[in-house]
Every structure is written in structure tokens, then in C-alpha cells.
Design a protein around this nucleic acid. Structure first.
Lengths: 240, 240
DNA sequence: ACGATATGCTTCGTATACATTCGCGGCAAG
DNA sequence: CTTGCCGCGAATGTATACGAAGCATATCGT
């Protein structure tokens, strides 16, 4: 069947609201400390208060807003002081994910059938890499952060671990928040590493995949710290 | 003033439902794959469907249930295959938290005023340690997992990093799920280490706090693996 | 002038009612 | 006998309405 109307057109609405609010927070449209009221959001997005409530609850679980009963919700503070530690944790998570993905690829090469969504994830990943290469060639650096995110989430899908993928999603959002308005930063210099990582995964080389991913995240961290911390001594460079 | 009504009686209700459902999942009352319907939960807990929806959305963010639009929610699978990796990631997070807590304690000792909730968290932690010692002395091992959890979350509060605390909460829930019905396992042998850790934190010894916490988590992991994996070779010991 | 109390508004929490969609059983055609 | 289609039932998604709790401000008394 060609699925005459299988496309729901758009996600169920709480999802859209959730993504929209999170995007507004990450991109700075909603500043930390700002009060976010249900009524305002519901009118802004043209939905009822119930979906907004669910979205706020999810945002709270993700750490983007803080709520107190009967006291309302406010946008949380950007975790500037946690930058180094967040990068360190992300490094471990991503490296583990890469290793798991490589292991799974090796298992599949041995003849065992891959999981249900494996081929789909693998194909999506290939498309992401091609899109990224095109964006780099066209100097469309504004698209890179989004593609970068999709690449790393794609590798998480490849790893087959929902737990690790969820952790990555959470911490990745925080780090994206750190980059804030600095959109065109994670430039082309690290994009090329993606192909190497995926190559190691496809080859089933666990150690190499883990090593490459760890270095990839580390270079990202280096780029961030060089740009945002005042002094190299790194005492308390908090912009707080 | 002495806060005439500091005790709100009970948590706001969505919170209670959330904790109750999560507890049912972790303790096995709700088995993986089971369908969880809003109506059933609302009647079971005597609340409306809206708070149940919020709880389900939060559970989904935490990875305990999986939902598809218009298709309902089901209890997720226990991430048995992720045990090792989850412990590894948890080790990094907890060690980082311990180091941060020690750094903060050292800063405070230098004369700077602690954050708002610091003293409260520190006092709570002391109480948890005492309660745990009493439980150990009375052979009330059933209380230890809960106290263990409160200790580690307390240290997270001491670290002052909401981001790391949120990550710990998430991963800690997963690991608690792994232990499942094995309630009286994380026995007394590792409880005594808590006091050492807190001592290093109070002394402001970052390196020691980090080292002790890493070893503490590692011993917990050892205990888990020894109990649940069939063979020492560790091929594919998945109970799947 | 300062503080405590009281009042009003805003916001959250909950319940009820209606629209939309998915899954499944039955039925008919090949 | 298999296969495709159709209709029904149940559960989810959404909207609206109402009661309860906090917070801010204003007023009154000392």
C-alpha cells in the first residue's frame, strides 16, 4: 500500500509544543529566570493548557525549567559552571555508544540479522553525512549544529541501547544550550571526523570507534572552552 | 518565624502518582511489556486522567515507559544488556559529583558563604548516615536501598550542579531497576564507605573524594555482575 | 513611620465532556 | 481457504469549566 493518509501531518501537539519551547529556551528567546506561564504558552501555540502542562513537565525532567507547586515555572539557569564536567560525561557516554554500535555491526556481519530499525538508522546516518558534506561545501554552516545532533543521535540508535540514547539526548541538550547563540561555531573542522567514526563502526572495530568518538568530543570541548573561558588558568571563569 | 505550616501534608498529587507508578515498575508490580492505560491508573490512584498523563509523560522521559501516539503506553524492557555500560557512566557521573562537592566544601571553608540550600543538604546527609548505621545494626537491610539512594542524591545536592544531579537521578533509576527484586543485596559491606566519602568531601579533598566514589560505584557494579551474570567469561550473558 | 493583617488577583490542580484515531472482528469476494 | 475491506468499540488526545492555594498589594492599627 502506498499509504494514502498514513502521514499524520504533524506530531501529536504536545511534542510540537515541547520541541518549540525547548528550542526557544536553547536559542535564547526565553531567557533564564523568565516566568513561563501555561496560559501564555497555550495562547502562543494555539493549543489548550493540557498539552502545555505535559510539555512543561517534560522540560522539567530535562532540566530546562524549574517548577514549584502553585508557584509557577521559570526557565532554569544555563549551567555554565558545569561545562567541563558535562563535556567529560558526554565523552564517556558517546564513546560507549560508539563502541556498542561497532560491536553490533560486527555481530551483524557475522551473519546474525540486525535489529528491526537498524537498516533504517544506518541509511538515515548516510543521508546525514551527505547533507553535512554538502552544507560544508556550500558554506551553509548554520545547518551544521542540527546535522551534528542528528549524526550523534543516529549513532545512538545504531548502538541499540535506549538507555544510553536517552542519556545522550539529555546531556546533549544541555551542551547545545551552552553554545547558545554561538550557532556557527562547531565549524567544519570536526565534521570530517564523523565519516571516520562511522567507518570504524561499520568495520566492527570497537576500540577504534570508542577512541575516535572520545577524541571527537574532546575536540568539541576544546573549541568551546577556548572560546568562552577568559583565562587559560581556568580558575573560576564562571560568567555567573 | 517558625513556619506555622511548613508541612504541606502531601505532595501535589501528580508527584505522588509519578513516584507510585515508577515504584511499581521498579519493584516489578508492573512487568515490562504490560500495557498501562490512563483509565486504569486514574481509578487505581483515585485521581483524574490529567495527572496520570503528566506522570506517564515524565516516565517516558525517564525511559521507563514507551508511548506511541494514539497507541497507548507500555512498560519498557529492563535494560539488562546495558548493565555494564550504565555502571561505567554512573561511575564517572558520581565521581565528578563527589569532586565538585569537595571543591565546594573547600571554597566554603575559605570563608565564602555557602549556597542557599547547602547547610540543609549537609544536615540531611548526616541524618541519612545515622539512619543507615542504625539500619545496619538492626539488620533492617530492606531500608538500605532507599537510604543509599538518598545518600547519593544528597551528595549531588552538595555538588551544587543541577545538571549532574538530574543525570544521576535518571541513570540511578535505571540501575535500581536492574536490581529489581534483589532488594536486600547491596548489603552492609559497602555502606561504611559512605562516611569515608563524605569525610573527603568535608575536607575539601577533591581527588580523594573522586577516587573513593569511583571505587564505591565499582564495587557496587562488581556485586551486581557477580550475582546476575552466569559465567565469568562474560560472553552474551543476557537473560533475554 | 513601621509592621501585621486582610483582600484581590493570578496561577495551579482537578474534573468532566467531546473529537479523533487505532486495533480488531466479521463479512464478502477471489 | 485465503485475502482484502469495512464497521464497531475502546483508548487516546484535546478543550472547557470550576475549586483551591500562593503571592502581591493595600489598608489599618500601633
Amino acid at each position: 500500500m502506498a499509504d494514502p493518509a498514513p502521514q499524520p501531518g504533524q506530531d501529536p501537539a504536545p511534542q510540537r509544543v515541547l520541541d518549540a519551547i525547548r528550542r526557544d529556551i536553547i536559542l535564547g528567546a526565553l531567557r533564564p529566570g523568565a516566568r513561563v506561564t501555561e496560559a501564555a504558552l497555550s495562547t502562543a501555540y494555539g493549543v489548550s493548557r493540557v498539552p502545555v502542562r505535559e510539555a512543561l513537565r517534560a522540560l522539567e525532567a530535562e532540566g530546562f525549567v524549574e517548577s514549584r507547586p502553585y508557584a509557577g515555572s521559570t526557565v532554569a539557569e544555563i549551567p555554565l559552571d558545569d561545562a567541563e564536567d558535562l563535556f567529560a560525561v558526554r565523552g564517556i557516554i558517546e564513546a560507549t555508544i560508539a563502541r556498542r554500535a561497532a560491536r553490533r555491526a560486527a555481530t551483524h556481519s557475522a551473519g546474525q540479522p540486525p535489529g528491526r530499525g537498524w537498516w533504517e538508522a544506518r541509511r538515515t546516518l548516510a543521508g546525514v553525512l551527505d547533507d553535512g558534506d554538502r552544507a560544508v561545501a556550500a558554506d551553509a554552516l548554520a545547518d551544521l549544529p542540527e546535522l551534528n545532533n542528528r549524526f550523534h543521535l543516529g549513532v545512538a540508535s545504531l548502538s541499540g541501547s535506549a538507555s544510553l540514547a536517552a542519556l545522550l539526548r539529555q546531556i546533549s541538550g544541555k551542551i547545545e544550550w551552552l553554545y547558545a547563540a554561538d550557532v556557527d561555531s562547531r565549524g567544519r573542522h570536526s565534521w570530517g571526523e564523523h565519516r571516520l567514526i562511522l567507518g570504524a563502526i561499520d568495520a566492527g572495530d570497537e576500540a577504534e570507534a570508542e577512541r575516535l568518538m572520545a577524541g571527537h568530543v574532546l575536540s568539541s570541548q576544546r573549541g568551546y572552552l577556548e572560546r568562552f573561558t577568559p583565562g587559560p588558568t581556568g580558575t573560576d571563569a564562571a560568567a555567573r
